[in-house]
Amino acid sequence: MSDTHTVLHDPNGLIEADLPLDRAPHEALVTAVLAWKDPDLAPRDYEQIALQLTGHARAVAADVHRLAAALPKSDGRGALTEVILREANGRLAAPLQGTACCAQDRARLVQALYTRLDRLTEPAPAAT
């Protein structure tokens, strides 16, 4: 019996671009994590939650980046999006810690990225 597998090379993330985000369960997780007052979880549990939120934040950030790149240069939403994405990249580069604070920071990041994603999917504001 032999194991076979195919190695997928997708440096531009085009395969992921066609997959919809699994938004509802992650938004529920964000809501729950941000509602914590004095949680008493083991550090490994905080790490797992932060890891889950980190992976989802990266997926949302990729969608935000893709939408921003498609905006016309005259659309002001692009400049703000670049600032938000730079901040997100910096926060995602920070090492995970087994703390409630770390998990809540990642939850706030997912929340901010979804806010930006929603703004990018709205019709462009009319020029005055």
Rank of each mutant, 00 (worst) to 15 (best):
P11Y: 12
Q52T: 14
L113P: 10
R77A: 11
G13V: 12
Y46E: 12
D38G: 09
K37W: 00
A50V: 01
L113H: 03
A100E: 07
P25S: 02
G76M: 13
P43E: 15
Q52E: 15
V60E: 03
R77Q: 02
A24F: 13
T121S: 15
T54R: 14
L41D: 14
L34S: 00
R108Y: 09
G78N: 11
V33N: 08
L21C: 09
L85R: 15
C102K: 03
L85S: 06
R108K: 05
G90Y: 02
A32M: 09
L67F: 01
D3M: 05
E122W: 12
E82N: 12
A68I: 07
P20T: 05
A50W: 06
R44C: 11
L21N: 08
G13A: 02
P125E: 13
A61F: 09
H65N: 09
C102Q: 10
H26F: 13
H5K: 15
L96W: 07
P25Q: 06
P125H: 05
E27C: 10
A127D: 05
T99K: 00
G78F: 05
A93S: 11
L53F: 03
Q104P: 11
I15D: 03
L113F: 10
P125I: 08
T54G: 14
A62R: 15
A107M: 02
A126I: 12
D118F: 02
L67N: 15
L109A: 10
D105V: 03
A100P: 01
P125N: 11
L19V: 13
E82M: 09
T6K: 09
E47P: 00
T99A: 05
D40N: 08
G76I: 01
L92Y: 04
P25T: 01
D63S: 15
I84K: 03
R77D: 08
G78A: 13
R77G: 12
A62I: 06
E82I: 07
R119T: 13
L21T: 09
T128K: 08
G76H: 07
V33S: 07
G55D: 13
L34E: 10
K37C: 03
L21I: 07
D3P: 01
L51G: 14
A112Q: 08
L53D: 14
L117G: 13
V83E: 02
A126F: 05
P43I: 13
T99M: 04
A107S: 10
S2Q: 12
P95G: 12
A79F: 10
H5T: 05
P39M: 04
D118H: 07
T128Q: 14
S74G: 09
I15S: 07
D40L: 14
P123H: 08
R86W: 05
P125A: 10
Y114Q: 00
H26G: 00
Q111I: 11
R91W: 01
R58F: 01
G90L: 04
A112D: 12
A124M: 04
A62Y: 05
G76S: 07
V30W: 04
H5G: 05
S2M: 10
V7K: 03
D38M: 10
A50L: 06
A17M: 03
L29I: 00
L51D: 15
V64S: 12
Q48R: 05
K37Q: 09
K73E: 01
L53E: 11
Q104T: 09
T121F: 06
V64K: 08
L92Q: 14
L19P: 08
A124Y: 00
L80D: 15
C102T: 06
N12V: 14
T99C: 06
A70S: 15
I84L: 11
T4F: 04
T81E: 11
D3G: 08
I15W: 14
R66T: 14
